[in-house]
Design a protein around this nucleic acid. Structure first.
Lengths: 335, 335
DNA sequence: TTGTAAGCGTTATCAC
DNA sequence: GTGATAACGCTTACAA
């Protein structure tokens, strides 16, 4: 437990420097010496002390990932992508879960600024854009996934929410719907705003008037979706379809419909966003927009690592394509 | 970015020691000095360097959690419990995802042995018991969740798998079933073995002969469950119920039944284990054994922190109760 | 109440 | 090829 490099050095009859060289695979050491040292390391079960190494080298080979909620499959899929790239490059990954709380997110950020990580990735971040920019300006390697942001030194991978939403709504229109609800997320979330834009565009392309009363906020979670849908119903509004800015809120709609015996998709068709793990298991299975979550994580990790390694020409922003997965909840002919 | 304690000290006209005292809330510093120092810290946006601090103090205030798969809700629920306790005590949490690969698990373990964490928690670990014991013997603070293990210096929280399985199977028997399949996990998993024991006990208590041909291995995953169930069906065995050692495998059974139009619970009743996030969304909803995952995480984190702080009398092993959640998949009268 | 100086365990630099 | 030595940035005796 408290064996250090000098202990190894002593037992192997070499200097600490040599041991260090062996540890770092410096090819200059004579094979014979190297083997002797390795034997002692094995014998003593020596493990280098990370803090000492980090202090001396001023880097940690670790990436910090700040996630809104580790239980959401959208986030974990992204994390998987990050991990895969990171490990391949010998980077470790530290995951921090903010529980969707902006203050906790800030606290974590401060925590990670102690240089225990070489770079930071934000997933589903609530942080105001300016604070992210500040971070970058202070010299930290920062990337953000899922949210569109185009600022100096901030790496970004996102999907085109506008056109994805448009595709989803057009799909509903194609199924014969004209009165389509839009369930939005937090008002301040750009994601949500973009989806609204796509929704309006789709309506416009088919000459369907935009009815603002059909837009309701469900705060991106199940309960919020339930309540938003309940409000719409209780107002007595007429509509035959729902486009939900994420699958979680759609779950709330399912629940409400179950309780009130409202048939899906017969009486209400639904399309969500995120392709959450549960959505394909629902009855009826939920149509949704699938984002290439894993790839987004992988790609941003790659960008970040390249930029941490001093590469100047790392493309700052990448846009990946999402795709509509049509399942039972939006198709009248099946079931 | 590279502001250090001396820079703060210089600007505040004090010694580095005083700055350090302010940072660590040492009450001995005069309020006036303290304020002056804080102002400079703020001004310079100084953040202490973790590696230097860790090196000097020989601790990191970080707990490492090694998890089999971050996508499985069983794991994330536990992690949430760990986090909550840890953060309350000012500990950070590092999550490592082994992707159910024993070699990756070993690699992570080696990584964490560099003293970048003060203690290690294993969740759904595949590691042979002896290796865990070795870890503890080398002086690391180690805890393991979900798997029963009673060895010196290894902290443990688990549930009583035997009686939980017994309860589930007795529930099925109570519903009139006598020919009950047991879908097991990896052969070497103690968890799975315990559940088998409970299964056999329950049969015994109701004088139902144990039929070994009704036990099939599904490797704890969806595909495995599908295939195991298919093998049973193709052998032409008769049975009216399935007890699956986890919910994932039950998903496979659902899939098979869907394809072959086998009615659940009419033709086959099913009970799983884990209360996975998806299980309540299935149709029919899946009866399952719910373990207090969050509490398990919380409790083990508490044990670990206490033991890292040198408390001698930390109870090594705790057993929590799981409970049967009866849903539609095992009750003939409903739906 | 504050400051001086040593030391945590590595690795980088420079000799040999 | 190998080794002595300084330095990374902080905390903690001990002194003042």
């Amino acid at each position: 437990m408290d064996i250090k490099i000098v202990d190894v050095a002593r037992l192997a009859n070499v200097s600490p420097t040599t041991v260090s060289r062996v540890l770092n695979n410096n090819p200059i050491v004579k094979p014979k010496t190297r083997d002797a040292v390795l034997k002692v390391i094995e014998e003593l079960k020596y493990v280098p002390h990370a803090a000492a190494k980090n202090l001396r080298q001023q880097k940690t080979m670790t990436i910090g990932v700040i996630v809104s909620d580790i239980k959401v499959s959208y986030n974990t899929d992204i994390v998987k992508g990050i991990q895969t790239k990171a490990y391949a490059q010998k980077y470790k990954v530290v995951i921090c879960d903010t529980q969707n709380d902006l203050d906790i997110e800030r606290e974590y950020l401060r925590l990670l600024m102690d240089r225990s990580v070489d770079g930071i990735i934000l997933v589903a971040s609530l942080l105001p854009e300016q604070e992210i920019v500040d971070l970058a300006e202070r010299g930290f390697a920062v990337g953000i996934i899922g949210r569109r942001i185009d600022r100096a030194n901030v790496l970004n991978v996102h999907t085109d929410n506008v056109s994805a939403a448009k595709e989803a709504v057009e799909h509903l229109i194609g199924q014969g719907h004209r009165d389509i609800v839009f369930l939005s997320g937090y008002a301040n979330a750009k994601d949500s705003y973009d989806r609204l834009e796509g929704y309006i565009k789709a309506l416009g392309m088919h000459s369907i008037p935009f009815r603002p009363e059909l837009v309701e906020n469900g705060n991106f979670n199940e309960t919020g979706g339930y309540e938003a849908f309940a409000r719409l119903k209780e107002k007595g509004l007429t509509f035959s379809a729902v486009f939900s800015a994420n699958d979680e809120m759609a779950l709330g709609v399912y629940e409400y419909c179950n309780e009130k015996k409202i048939g899906i998709p017969g009486e209400v068709a639904i399309v969500g966003v995120d392709n959450d793990r549960v959505s394909k298991y629902l009855t009826p299975s939920l149509s949704t927009i699938d984002q290439p979550k894993y790839d987004m994580g992988f790609l941003l990790a790659e960008k970040l690592i390249r930029s941490m390694n001093g590469e100047a020409e790392v493309p700052r922003v990448s846009v990946l394509n999402s795709r509509l997965i049509v399942r039972q909840s939006s198709t009248t002919y099946s079931r």
